[in-house]
Design a protein around this nucleic acid. Structure first.
Ligand SMILES: [Mn+2]
Ligand SMILES: [Mn+2]
Ligand SMILES: [Zn+2]
Ligand SMILES: [Zn+2]
Lengths: 137, 137
DNA sequence: TCCCTTATTGCAACTTATTTGCAATAATTA
DNA sequence: TAATTATTGCAAATAAGTTGCAATAAGGGA
């Protein structure tokens, strides 16, 4: 698996200080962060970082699948670094800490059944679990 | 299962024209609608309806589990009438038409495994499928 | 290493989206 | 029908996200 720098380069994008800052912040985070939070932490790493750039960077990173967006009841636009190969996320409702887990196979049967019943052709899915992390129990 | 009017009454809330309008709009919708859309349709049923009231009504309805919020890549705040007993939703990426389907059981094994692996205690889940409806195929 | 080209940034201004205070209104209950 | 009080709509305030544009800084080649 390529590094994020390689992914950027191969996409013809430049590796810049603001992008480095955003990536570092996300890499060190132990829960999903909203743009505002990423900005607040990122400005410590790159003094001239702007919120606008955070938005643009997240959009780019999401396109390149470097980050994933998590949906919660309250805040809907938290961002999380994408773990390689994993697809699903489990978020702690106490502290927001999130872990990713594989499990594609578990849904295959379910999806087949739903397709049969509804006539829809399922192309993607969003599975997100909410719970309490060991820390918060 | 109680009607939405009963649910409201039992919660000590009043059954008003604006709320009736919002509920009617959602009941007639064949896809999830954002507040703005609900307002546009609702004002035809209740001429003095305001967008502010739509927001407040949706918040109330969501608390009472009368409506559910669907999360999509683009718009994250679509609302859908809650179908009794059902938990999951399948949204058409073409036209937005949505159907709900049961399937709690399918996730039991997966959730047990995830709890084991992560130490989290899973309390809820968000499973949303995206596909193409028969209409759009 | 220095230059050149051009992707990227940050500012400022703008557009939505959502929230809140408050007086007027309308749904209940007696 | 009247009294009570939840609810509404307006106006104004926030918050969230977007866009135009000139200044800046990657990074490929000389
Ligand atoms: Mn999955
Ligand atoms: Mn969302
Ligand atoms: Zn926690
Ligand atoms: Zn469709």
């Amino acid at each position: 698996m390529p590094t994020w720098e390689e992914t950027l380069s191969q996409a013809g994008c430049r590796i810049t200080e603001p992008r480095r800052a955003v990536m570092t912040v996300l890499a060190q985070a132990e829960r999903s962060l909203v743009p505002q939070e990423i900005f607040a932490l990122g400005i410590k790493l790159h003094a001239t970082l702007s919120l606008v750039t955070v938005y643009r960077t997240l959009e780019l990173f999401e396109e390149l699948s470097l980050v994933r967006r998590v949906h919660q009841d309250d805040k809907c636009h938290g961002y999380l670094l994408t773990a390689a190969g994993h697809r699903h996320v489990l978020v702690c409702e106490g502290c927001g800490r999130a872990v990713e887990f594989p499990g594609q196979d578990d849904l295959v049967a379910l999806i087949a059944r739903v397709e049969e019943c509804t006539g829809y052709q399922v192309e993607a899915h969003l599975l997100q679990l909410v719970g309490v992390c060991p820390h918060c129990q």
